[in-house]
Write a protein that binds this DNA or RNA. Structure first.
Lengths: 345, 345
DNA sequence: ATGAAAGCGCTAACAG
DNA sequence: CTGTTAGCGCTTTCAT
């Protein structure tokens, strides 16, 4: 490039600069960039040459203004939860950035007020700062999805529209029940029969979904679940306490947990009692967090296919933003079980 | 708002709409938004009223085009490292999003090719998509900072310009040596005298900085470091092996590690040998990852003040983008030690 | 204190 | 296939 001496020009080259250098009109340069097939090969080559020479790249603001498109996807980032094993969002953000970038979109992060799930969306929408949103945390009772639909905002949800009988928006989700069923089956295969459940409170739809994978699997094998389940908050302390109570009252030989955070609580209780995870009592978590990967002796965990989730979300997004918008149904993906030391003898 | 029936208008209101409703010219509306002091109170009130009524918000693309500013900050997201305890970026991204949002900036994420530290920057710069960058991973030998400087791109580095004798860019960093000194002093206070170090290979400047906090603290107390240090890769397996060797050959009663990942490796070795972390051997990690927070019995770790880092970075960014650009020097922040069970009897 | 004119850089629509 | 014209919505002169 002309300025490959390492210093960029004070003001970037414009379409007009390229047009002049190539000896064509501005429109032809625009076509060379956006509809190359419209140009005669030799003209295209000449224009392309000028583009390379000047290091030209279309000005985003100008293009956005004209096309009414920003090629930006908004993602609301909820505040970090310290003291939990929840690294889900981190992995998801990475996947989404990779995938959407390949599709020509960048990810715009905006902060979410934990007390108001809808904050932030409004301004970005009205100022036409993003083309669409990816909405996470679409648990039951979260007004996000309904609000976005009412606002006619293009968005794809990571999470099923639990309440929406006829939700019109595309969504991608992971089959939680299938995940815990996988975990429970694995434990049954290892010879366990008294398999306990530590999950979240009843008002969590996702929690109930995960629980059902455990209970239905046990029931299919003719095993009872009575007294083997506990519902607590998603903290290490709660998991620890629940495990202690269950161990005393129901004598399970294995635990399936709704999250890695709760599973870590179980590991705490086992450590307290001098029991070895895996050898004495088996433990399975959910989310395959970094914690699960590095804690001794390794925590078996259900892993959500976040890379696939991102791919499907971007696919839905592209459909949503194409003309005419493609009708996109929901996509349900299946998680896998990552077996580690905590569930092996 | 006029459309608070829940449905947004097909096309958002513009300056002209507001001007018509308020019975003033478009420029007056613009002034009401950007220079309210220029208007007579009653005119301002009338315009503000029309703005509220229509739910007007300036179109970003148009404003960006005109002002040549996007109010976007670019952040390169390196691929996730599975199997490590490194949740540093996650916490940092959150902090940066919160802080920059308060300053009127949004964060634009773009993916980084691990093999090319400079990829991605070029396009965003040339297409004027972002106003500035936040560069992380500015370790020695990383051409990022030098490249950005040569390109005259506005950026703030999270990390000292180790190689730059006269680096002109603002930076924010955390005093790694102070962190490991804190850890070592804490262990000395607990009565330990044989304190081992497990760190990274010598080519990591950050690693050497962290190591120096350990070695200088021991030397100050007249204690030897001979045979007590190990340099390995940043993986759990490496930490585990290094701990095993050190335990056999140097009989330390405590470990200071360059990362939580390595510290987890030590915990693996202790578990292998039936030793209890905290009671039998003390362990301290670095970064206060989620792993450190939830692993039994809790991993003592050096915590970087990422919230403060974000604040300082945004402050530097604002200086950089103001007219005239404020001269901003580097800022060095001090980490703190979070004491948990792994270093208490 | 308010209004008129100009133009940021680009692309859609049409004319040649 | 290429060029001309117009305008996206905003802010920056400059007049009034």
């Amino acid at each position: 490039m002309a300025w490959s001496n390492g210093r960029a020009p004070a003001t970037p080259p414009t379409l007009a600069d390229v047009a002049e250098l190539a000896g064509v009109s501005r429109q032809t340069v625009s076509n060379a960039v956006n509809n190359p097939d419209l140009l005669r090969p030799d003209t295209l080559a000449r224009v392309q040459d000028a583009i390379d020479q000047l290091g030209y790249l279309p000005n985003r603001a100008a293009r956005n203004l004209r096309t009414r498109l920003s090629h930006l996807i908004g993602l609301r980032l909820a505040p970090v939860q310290e003291g939990t094993a929840n690294a889900l969002m981190d992995r998801f953000v990475h996947s989404l950035v990779e995938t959407s970038s390949a599709a020509g979109y960048h990810v715009l992060l905006f902060p979410g007020d934990p007390t108001d799930p809808v904050s932030g969306y409004e301004d970005l929408l009205r100022s036409t700062a993003v083309d669409a949103f990816v909405a996470t945390d679409t648990y039951l009772g979260n007004p996000q999805a309904a609000w976005l639909e009412a606002r006619r905002a293009p968005f794809v949800a990571f999470g099923r529209p639990w309440d929406g009988v006829h939700a019109a928006h595309p969504w991608v989700d992971v089959d939680n029940a299938a995940g815990t069923a996988l975990a429970t089956t694995h434990l049954l295969d290892q010879g366990h029969e008294r398999i306990a459940w530590i999950g979240w409170r009843k008002d969590s739809i996702i929690g109930e979904d995960r629980r059902s994978g455990w209970s239905s699997t046990l029931r299919e094998r003719g095993l009872s679940t009575t007294g083997l389940a506990s519902r607590v908050e998603d903290t290490v302390a709660s998991g620890r306490e629940a495990a202690s109570v269950l161990l005393d009252e129901a004598h399970p030989s294995a635990f399936v947990c709704a999250s890695d955070t709760l599973a870590m609580g179980v590991l705490h209780t086992l450590a307290d009692r001098g029991l070895a995870a895996g050898r004495d009592v088996a433990v399975v978590g959910f989310d395959d967090s970094q914690v699960a990967q590095v804690v001794p002796p390794g925590l078996t965990s259900v892993r959500q296919p976040l890379e696939e989730v991102a791919v499907e979300i971007v696919r839905a997004l592209e459909g949503l933003l194409s003309h005419p918008p493609a009708e996109s149904r929901g996509v349900l993906l299946t998680p896998e079980l990552v077996v580690r030391g905590s569930s092996r003898c």
